[in-house]
Computed example of a mutant assay.
Amino acid sequence: MVRLSNNLVGLLNFLTFVLSIPILVGGIWLSRQSNSECERFLEKPIIVLGVFLMVVSLAGLIGACCRVSWLLWGYLLVMFLLILLLTVFTIFAFAVTNKGAGKVVSGRGYKEYRLGDYSNWLQKRVSNTKNWNKIKSCLSDSKVCSSFADKYVSDTVEQFYAEHLSALQSGCCKPPSDCNFTYVKPTEWNANATGVQNTNSDCNTWNNDQTVLCFNCESCKAGLLDNIKSNWKKVAIVNVIFLVFLIVVYSIGCCAFRNNRKDNAYWNRS
């Protein structure tokens, strides 16, 4: 008789198998539609995730329902490694996102960002020229600054300073406040010819060219890291919930594996 633990493992893996189908189809569709570096970057992980879920869920489904012990053993091994991997990643995600936050600027509704405030590991990732060139391509494709310019184009300087900008808008689409540039419009600022040398290197990096702006600024990299920090923390919280689910499924799977061995031993004696 197929026992309760086998039925539960079979049901859970059937649901996972059904879930893997739209994930895999979505990845294949994205690979056919991709026109940018960002889309091409996303398609491969989605396809790999879809195939992985499909193969693992099939192994668990067949192993539990058909009482194939070696398949169920392989399934449990993969589950154990996945639990271990997610645990390590979750701890790592909390560790590298522990530092860094936007700074409140007097008289501004938005915050500003400094690259040095974030973890060294994250800083190294965005400071790598090859990595940053790909990221800039993604930022350009997403039109983060062109949509920003259209949204606030009619603002006066007082209205603009009161806006609540996102980290990317603040870091990439305008110069830092300590440059003391004169506001013309959201993505156009004039340098004041005061002869005072500003210590912030982003002031020299800023360019009114709409394809350049502050995409090469340290503040833009910091704005991106603030986004990553926020997103990784959300992912880490989801991972904790998913880990609890995996541990429960793994425990049920161990019971099903034990049942299979008992049943096989019974039939061998018979």
Rank of each mutant, 00 (worst) to 15 (best):
S106K: 14
G107Q: 09
R108E: 12
R108Q: 15
G109Y: 06
G109T: 06
G109R: 14
Y110H: 15
Y110E: 10
K111P: 05
K111N: 15
R114S: 13
R114D: 09
L115H: 08
D117A: 09
D117N: 13
D117L: 05
D117E: 13
Y118A: 08
Y118P: 03
Y118V: 11
S119W: 03
N120W: 02
N120P: 00
W121C: 02
W121F: 10
L122S: 12
S127Q: 13
N128H: 11
N128T: 12
T129E: 13
K130N: 10
K130S: 15
K130Q: 15
K130W: 04
K130C: 02
K130L: 05
N131P: 01
N131H: 10
N133M: 08
N133V: 03
K134H: 12
I135F: 11
I135R: 14
I135V: 12
I135W: 05
K136N: 14
S137R: 07
S137T: 11
S137C: 04
S137H: 07
L139T: 06
L139R: 07
S142E: 02
S142H: 04
V144G: 02
C145T: 06
S146V: 01
S146T: 10
S147R: 13
F148Y: 11
F148A: 04
F148T: 03
A149E: 09
A149D: 12
A149K: 09
A149V: 02
D150E: 09
D150A: 10
K151W: 01
K151G: 02
V153F: 06
S154R: 14
D155H: 09
D155A: 04
T156K: 08
V157K: 14
V157E: 15
V157M: 09
V157S: 13
E158N: 12
E158H: 09
E158L: 04
Q159S: 09
Y161A: 14
Y161T: 10
A162E: 12
A162N: 11
E163W: 01
H164I: 01
L165T: 03
L165P: 02
L165F: 10
S166P: 00
A167H: 05
